[in-house]
Amino acid sequence: MSSLLSVNNLSKAFGAVRVADDLCFDIAEGEAVGILGPNGAGKTSLFNLITGALKSDSGTIYYRQADITKHSAQKRCRNGIARSFQIPQPFNGMTVFENCLVAATQAGGMSGSKAEQFVVEVLDDTGLLDKSNIKSGSLTLLDRKRLEMSRALATKPSLLLLDEIAGGLTEAECGELIDSIKRVRASGTTIIWIEHVIHALMAVVERLIVIDFGRMIAEGDPETTIKSDAVKEIYLGVDGGEAA
């Protein structure tokens, strides 16, 4: 397997807060990787660095063997990197359908009825189709999270970054979400998923990366990594499934 994304010695600090501290890892084409770590560890910031929403202090990011460290967010997205925001950022004045249409027509490069058809397929898959014509500003938090994922999928990404989308779901809903992500994965999309709902994460990913204070403290196959001392230490006092 060739590597799709390669992060090399990536560092970023906000004043004294280090959100990325000499991070190095590779993501293979078609892989599904989970990211774990306590709140404030720098997980979301890592996504911001990969998507270009944030500029790194040092280090490089390679995507498809090309150095994208200096590329704009817009260019990275057009090249196939899409993300969902942990705190949903919908286009409030637009309908759910239009939100996704922006993604399909801009980053996805589709147009006309082809774009519209594709968006319908995506919304059908994520379970938002019956809310297509509702303004996204009036959605519940749960549906906003669904919209985040739908919008990212509507860009037809090669690399999908998901930031905490399973929190607060019921058992059944969580099952649907897992199925939906597995389908995305099966279609060949590479996935990096930040998630506190560990059983959901474990059902999908084949590798775990654990981050604390911007540093990678453990990495490897999910079963062993989750039992490692480093992880136990972080989640000490926090009961198994859900971290606050």
Partner: peptide, 19 residues
């Protein structure tokens, strides 16, 4: 559509490939 997206949320718009 892209312009309306910018109106509503610039960060998200540029993250979705809007120039």
């Amino acid at each position: 559509l892209a312009l309306t997206a910018i109106r509503d949320n610039e960060t998200a718009a540029s993250g979705l490939g809007v120039n």
